[in-house]
Design a protein around this nucleic acid. Structure first.
Lengths: 324, 324
DNA sequence: ACTATATGCTGACAATTGTCAAAAAATATG
DNA sequence: CATATTTTTTGACAATTGTCAGCATATAGT
């Protein structure tokens, strides 16, 4: 009785499994299934079976270029875990945190225009990151966009102010710019209250409270935090807020783990948007990067201020690893 | 005038190039082009374009499992470089040369049946490798196959002889076996000549000269070569042939670099096939493996005796690297 | 501002690939 | 040695994917 191999062997060219031969001809030599069927003397349907088996056996690996797609994967995971509309994860790269920040800022700048459409009113916060986004923006022109400065101005040792952030952004977006002609923080609550009632300031605050989109960064509550080094808060202020459970800073306001604003002495002296105005926007774009920003970012997300996010892969991974 | 990015940006989910998003959805999430088109708000034709660009840009890598396909690739290269009908390259593996020889022999045994069809007359040479092939053959039954012993018998220290090689092979193939009832080498040319004219031997030699397929190994010309250790040739014989340019041994005959037989004292005393009979066969299956076999194998191929080859990846690579 | 050129997008059609039930072949079983 | 069971192959059809000419939009040049 003739005993033969069940499955046909290729024989013709390679002696190896006909499955490997089919996979080779298809993926390496680029033949189509008909040509392969003819060459291997089987039906085309059989070639389909062989190719599927080659896939199942793992002979063929379709890998998505990791450095490109890993970040995309992280973005999807961020999107899912935090219920965001969209996320953009950039490679941290091998360089310093400084370089990563620049890359994230450039990424946000590249993305921002496609998130805006005519008639939008964009609120712009202030900080190093936002400044770099504004600088990195290529000059484009979307009709009828208005940019609003979300917090008052501040003299900084860095040479950039809230005014410059929003002005540059408006300039590069070809947008109208509404600045907030007031200091970010005053020494005295009463003065702040009076200033808020000044007609010009009142109008500006009114305008920014009608923004439908906003771009901001998360600030950390660590002692070397920006909010202290720029002079907005004193070390004592910071310690007080931390004692109250502050986990981050958003537009000059301290927030707790759930993203709820912590109202304290400082808040009464600040001229700027209140956080309730930043909830439920069409787009709340959080641009931040770095280990120390993870907790603040999570808090901001928990508070419902964020619909879109731009960050680095490293930061994204830390956010995903955080067990909450 | 509104200046926008030329290509639509995905915006919706990832901010990254829409091309990456399309590639991701297609290859990772397994969506089809219609679903992707709907999701990205473009036509399906555009999705096709995106996917093609992703391929061109190298975002998607389809790699063929190297451990599987490398040998297939080597086989193809052998086939091409040496103008062979087919090649079968087996992994040398991490073990000893002994193990590799066994693997190659088993590979040849697995392949051989698919190379035979009814009515074939298969010439079988002799040697360690061929013996292992005969042993490894699974018992099958191809009608009307005849196996011929290509060279006379020889007492060997290994306990296998040309007779056993061909007999086992015939047995496992369910084939008729024509043995050569004579010693492989005689001490005296005249005696050999007389023996060749003996009717029974003459008939057997006549039979084997009508083989249409043959299986053989290549022997090396090194001092520890099998042809010496088995007693077919003396060291003096070997040295004489090497001086004449011998590069290998095929069926007991010395060949030069071009595969041409070198006729010497020994040839007149041998009972066995002459090499001219091994040229132009339907199939000449060379089964050999090992560094020291590279030169003999190349010589055998140059002589036109080989249409099919079974070897190890290591050996195949050396053959391909040889600059001729 | 207007036209020229390039680039990207689309719809309609062509080609390729996937599915599935049934036939054929191989193997197991009574 | 006939029959049952499993595996492999196949043909016909369905779904998916690829192509290409023409259209729309963007950029460049004057």
């Amino acid at each position: 009785m003739a005993i033969r191999t069940k499955r046909r062997t290729a024989g013709r060219f390679s002696g190896e499994s006909i499955i490997i031969e089919a996979a080779w001809l298809y993926h390496h030599d680029g033949l189509n299934q008909n040509e392969i069927a003819k060459q291997l003397q089987v039906s085309r349907a059989t070639v389909v079976n062989y190719l599927q088996e080659a896939k199942e056996r793992g002979y063929i690996r379709i890998s998505l270029s990791p450095e490109i797609f890993n970040n995309h994967k992280l973005a999807q995971e961020l999107r899912q875990k935090f219920n965001l509309q969209a996320a953009f994860v950039l490679p941290h790269g091998i360089g310093s945190d400084e370089e990563a920040l620049m890359r994230v800022a450039r990424g946000a700048a590249k993305w921002l225009p496609s998130l805006l459409k005519r008639g939008d009113r964009l609120g712009v916060a202030w900080g190093r990151t936002i400044y770099e986004v504004a600088e990195a923006l290529e000059k484009i022109d979307i009709e009828g966009v208005t940019v609003s400065q979300l917090v008052g101005s501040m003299a900084t040792p860095y040479g950039f102010t809230a005014e410059i952030c929003s002005a540059h952004m408006a300039q590069n977006l070809g947008a109208k710019c509404i600045n907030l002609h007031a200091p970010a923080v005053l020494s005295n609550p009463d003065l702040a209250a009076h200033l808020r009632n000044e007609p010009i300031i009142h109008a500006q605050l009114e305008a920014l409270s009608h923004c439908n989109k906003a771009i901001f960064a998360a600030g950390s509550c660590e002692p070397d935090s920006h909010i202290v080094s720029c002079g907005l808060a004193s070390i004592d202020d910071l310690e007080w807020y931390i004692k109250q459970g502050a986990k981050g800073v958003l537009c000059g306001r301290f927030i707790d783990e759930q993203g709820k604003p912590i109202i304290g002495n400082l808040d009464k002296r600040i001229i700027g948007v209140t956080l309730d105005r930043l909830q439920g926007l069409d787009i709340g774009l959080l641009v931040s990067q770095g280990v120390e920003k993870v907790t603040p970012m999570l808090a901001a997300i928990a508070g419902g201020y964020v619909t879109h996010i731009v960050t680095s892969d490293k930061t994204a991974q830390l956010m995903l690893d955080a067990n909450n």
